[in-house]
Amino acid sequence: METLLAPETRTGAPCCEPAGGPALDAIEAQATARVLKALSDPNRLRLLSIVKSGEGGEACVCDLTEPLDLGQPTVSHHLKILVDAGLLNREKRGTWSYYSLVPGALEAASQSILAL
């Protein structure tokens, strides 16, 4: 019975020159995927747009449910994903939460896509 060996083992030389290392390490890939996943939902894109265009570049959670025609729990879920992905800041003021874009977050997301 013939033993199956890898091509480089049978000939003694690698089959081709090794490619350069990956552009992203595992941690960078996970962080980039988290951001891209957050951006992949149309409702979350709309939330980012509403927050960005809000007065002073921020919006109260109370102003985010009506434009999306979604319930408050669903909007809160989407906002949490955007905060966890590092795209939005959340600031509690009394009983209300206000959201604003993390400075440079969208630019960083764009750069991570272009670096692939």
Rank of each mutant, 00 (worst) to 15 (best):
M1V: 07
M1K: 15
T3A: 15
A6Q: 08
P7I: 03
P7C: 07
T11C: 11
G12Y: 12
G12S: 02
G12W: 05
A13H: 10
C16V: 05
C16M: 13
A19D: 03
G21D: 11
G21P: 12
P22F: 10
P22A: 10
P22V: 05
A23T: 13
A23M: 14
I27K: 15
A29V: 00
A29M: 01
Q30M: 14
K37V: 06
L39C: 03
L39V: 06
L39N: 03
D41H: 12
D41C: 03
P42T: 11
N43I: 00
N43F: 04
N43K: 07
N43E: 05
R44K: 04
L45F: 06
L45A: 09
R46M: 09
L47T: 06
L48T: 03
L48G: 01
I50D: 03
V51Y: 02
K52D: 11
S53K: 04
G54C: 06
G54N: 02
E55I: 04
E55K: 11
G56R: 11
E58V: 07
A59T: 02
V61F: 08
D63K: 13
L64D: 06
L64V: 01
L64N: 04
E66Q: 15
E66I: 11
P67N: 02
L68K: 01
L68I: 02
D69S: 12
L70H: 07
L70C: 12
G71Q: 07
G71T: 04
Q72E: 12
P73L: 04
V75E: 00
V75L: 03
S76A: 14
S76R: 15
S76C: 09
H78S: 01
H78C: 01
H78Q: 08
L79R: 07
K80M: 00
I81R: 12
I81G: 01
L82Q: 04
D84I: 00
G86F: 10
N89P: 01
K92P: 00
R93V: 08
G94Q: 12
W96F: 02
W96M: 02
W96C: 07
W96I: 06
S97E: 07
S97D: 09
Y98D: 01
Y98S: 01
Y98I: 00
Y98H: 12
Y99T: 00
S100D: 00
L101C: 13
V102L: 06
V102S: 13
V102C: 11
P103V: 01
P103D: 11
G104W: 15
G104E: 15
A105L: 09
A105I: 10
A105F: 08
L106W: 05
L106R: 15
L106K: 14
A108N: 13
A109R: 02
Q111F: 09
L114Y: 13
L114S: 09
A115H: 12
L116S: 05
L116A: 10
